[in-house]
Amino acid sequence: MPENRRLAWRFLFGVWSALGLLLILQSYVATAGDGRDFTFTQHVMTVASQFYRAWIWAGLTPVIFWLRRELNRRHSNLVVVIALHFLAAVTCFAMGNVVRIWIIEITFGYWELRFYALSAVYTQLGAYSLIDFYIYWAILLVAYVTDVNWQRRQTELREEQLRTQLSQAELAALKQQVQPHFLFNSLNAIASLVREGQPTKSIEALAKLSSLLRQLMNYSGRPEIELWREYDYAQCYLAVEQVRFEERLVTKFDADEECLQALVPTLILQPLVENAVKHGIAQRRNPGRVTVTARRLGDRLQLQVANDPAEGGRHASEAENHGIGLSSTRTRLELTYGQHQKLEAVLNGPAGSIITIEIPLRFPEAAEKVEPISP
């Protein structure tokens, strides 16, 4: 606070010093038609007088700003407020000129007591002194515009904070929606192994699911994580599914080395990988591949999840594919990156389904140099 106040006073002093130069120029313009020749002392007094006037108003400016706010807060009647400001303008005009003339007399050595009487001071006031009356109203106008702009900025800031809080709440809700969904799918897959009488595979799948849940708990509070951690999540989930599908599920993870430390929304790949297994691999009798790739495209990161097409004459409808997985991913990207993201979905094509995401390429300030943990 003290440093900010010093900066404000320096700014105020600088502005009024510049206005003092304009007042000096205006003084010479106003007396240019008189034909008088000024002595050196008169020139110095003119310069000093206008600078003193400017600096006195520099001190009065915060008072006028405060007075405007206080009168508006205490009085709702506009006529009363204007009348009080008129009295304040007359007071500032009178007292400001009295102080200015006294300071000039002290500066130039006029120490006789009679020069400090109010009657003597007012004999030195001319029509030009009325400029101080108008200066008050000019400062009041600036105070009004400044306060209106400040209130508008505060309103915009509050609205932006509310929008941010709403977006964060929606993102958290979507994230919480994704986690139980994939957990349900994983447990359903393990339940299938139990029903098929495969206890060894069931135990193996439970162990891999436990490992995945442990990782999720470690980073559950982070909206963004490094890509290699996201790859670990997806690999753990596919490892669980691989126990179920065995050789029917082939996985491939490929990423540019520099992309592994890039930040991505937590669990952004998870629902896409689930859809790839559910709508692609689960509908095949022959082995099928799920491929996850990451590439750098200039200042953007491209993520892609692809799966081989389904077999047996059954293809999931586009509405099915646009369930919680794709729709929640699209919404999360829009809330996180706004217009700076892109999601394209090629569904049920001859080559299968391909989901492509592009987001800004960003890295943590201090990236954690830890090698990914294999599932």
Rank of each mutant, 00 (worst) to 15 (best):
G126P: 03
R330F: 04
D232P: 01
G109N: 05
L303C: 12
L303M: 09
N321E: 08
V142P: 03
I355L: 12
R10N: 12
N275R: 02
Q176N: 12
Q302H: 03
T266R: 04
I203D: 14
R289E: 12
T41R: 15
W16D: 04
I64Q: 06
S17F: 09
T293V: 04
L141M: 13
R114V: 15
T251Y: 04
V194A: 15
V243H: 13
S186A: 14
E159H: 06
A367T: 04
R285S: 11
T266P: 06
E156I: 12
V44P: 07
N77M: 00
T200D: 11
R285Q: 11
W111A: 14
L335V: 04
F253L: 10
L67Y: 06
A306H: 15
N4D: 14
E358K: 09
S192K: 08
E224G: 03
T107S: 13
S202T: 12
V273Q: 07
W57F: 14
Q26V: 12
E196G: 07
H75R: 09
W16N: 11
E230L: 01
L183W: 05
K208W: 08
L343W: 02
S17M: 07
A169F: 13
L227I: 08
G33E: 15
D147T: 10
L326V: 13
S202G: 07
A276E: 01
S192P: 05
G59K: 05
R244H: 02
A262T: 02
V370F: 13
W137P: 08
L12P: 02
C236R: 15
L209E: 00
A32E: 10
L213P: 02
Q283T: 06
Q261F: 10
W102Y: 07
P180S: 03
P62S: 08
F182K: 00
F184C: 05
T39E: 09
V178I: 14
N4V: 11
P223K: 08
E159L: 11
D256G: 06
R248D: 04
G312D: 00
T164E: 14
K342W: 13
F245P: 00
V178W: 01
A88W: 03
G338W: 12
P199Q: 02
L166A: 11
A367V: 03
E70V: 08
T336C: 01
V98D: 10
F133P: 08
